[in-house]
């Protein structure tokens, strides 16, 4: 393999303008910010020389695309690069691996970039080998389903969603769920997540509700996302963005689970009617699935507790506290 010899090639000065601007077939950079690299080069120069190929198309980048871009931004005239010539007989797979190892040695690839690597590798080797060797190399569990998932990100996601993924603004679970729905639905959900800044925990819940409601209400996901009620919530000037996100989730939840939400409201109403003394809290079991309510009494000392218990005993409505889950949706 040529990788072993690459360090034996002495870097030589190359005119920056002679290097092809395009990322080329070996590049695995997505969603990068050149700023830190520019500052670094300005301070100490290029420590690790880019690798170029000198072929019929002139000088093209095998590894170091971002460094070349940074040098161009800095208006550098020349750069020290390692050059591989056509008659060196280096295969495209070797070029790809040179790039991969060059990257792995200096930074963590984001998830989109991992998809790019795997997609490029798939052209040159069997999936089994990729799963066994390259998924662990990228810090991923060695399983075929993981490979399929990352290939989906690379091949079927548009730039907008890839940017979200690369920046870590989508939860892993949300990305997986989005990968299973059509592009128009993905885009509609992504707009909501982006505009209202659903947090990582809320994203999967939002997607789940949207998919379920589309099925139950016989609408498309873009139609649900464009719903007037959601728009009204999203544009309510009395709420900030996290509040918008929460209110939209609540709205969708009430549509998805009307009986559960009604029962919760009824229970809240029952408690409110009780007028519990301060320091006493009654809670229902999650989703009313368990049979028992719980009561928590906060008190300073025995006398305080006695007073609170006496206060409870005086509550007229307490014996009427019943099953809030009975009654169905409102």
């Amino acid at each position: 393999m040529y990788q072993n010899k690459i360090t034996e090639i002495a870097p030589r000065k190359v005119a920056i303008n002679d290097i092809d601007d395009s990322p080329g077939p070996f590049c695995m950079s997505f969603g990068f910010d050149l700023g830190p690299l520019i500052r670094s080069i300005r301070q100490v120069g290029v420590v690790n020389p880019p690798i170029l190929k000198n072929g019929s198309e002139g000088l093209t980048v095998i590894a170091g695309y971002r460094r070349i871009m940074a040098l161009k931004k800095l208006k550098a005239e020349t750069a020290a690069c390692r050059i591989i010539f056509e008659n060196d007989d280096v295969s495209p797979l070797e070029c790809l691996l040179l790039n991969l190892h060059d990257n792995l040695g200096t930074r963590n690839l984001n998830d989109v970039e991992k998809g790019m690597v795997l997609s490029r590798l798939e052209a040159w080797m069997p999936r089994k080998e990729i799963v066994k060797i390259y998924l662990p190399l990228l810090g991923l569990r060695s399983h075929e389903s993981n490979l399929r998932f990352f290939l989906e990100i690379e091949r079927f996601f548009d730039v907008k969603i890839k940017t979200f993924v690369a920046e870590g603004r989508l939860s892993w679970q949300a990305v997986k769920m989005l990968s299973k729905i059509d592009a128009a639905s993905r885009s509609a959900i992504l707009n909501l997540i982006s505009n209202l800044r659903f947090n990582i925990n809320q994203q999967a819940q939002l997607i789940d509700y949207m998919i379920d409601l589309a099925k139950i209400e016989g609408k498309s996901i873009p139609q649900i996302a464009a719903d007037e009620e959601l728009k009204t919530i999203g544009s309510d000037v009395h709420m900030n963005r996290p509040q918008h996100a929460k209110a939209i989730l609540n709205n969708l939840r009430a549509r998805r689970n009307p009986s559960v939400v009604s029962a919760e409201k009824r229970f809240k109403g029952m408690l409110s009617d009780l007028n519990l003394p301060d320091g006493i809290q009654i809670t229902a079991p999650p989703f009313f699935e368990g049979e028992y309510y719980k009561m928590v009494v906060s008190f300073r000392e025995g006398e305080d507790l006695k007073n609170k218990i006496a206060g409870l005993n005086r509550l007229k409505g307490l014996s009427k506290l019943g099953h809030a889950w009975k009654g169905g949706p409102e």
Binding site: K180, I211, D212, K215, I216, R256, N257, P258, S259, V260, A263, P286, F287, F288, E289, G290, W325, K326, G327, G328
Partner: peptide, 27 residues
């Protein structure tokens, strides 16, 4: 969802049961 996109079995009102399984709301 993936294998049976036309299925309606997921349409009901579900909650997380005491055993960690998803099941219909008690009533």
């Amino acid at each position: 969802r993936r294998r049976h996109p036309k299925s309606s079995v997921l349409n009901g009102e579900f909650i997380l049961g005491l055993d960690g399984k998803i099941r219909y709301f008690k009533p």
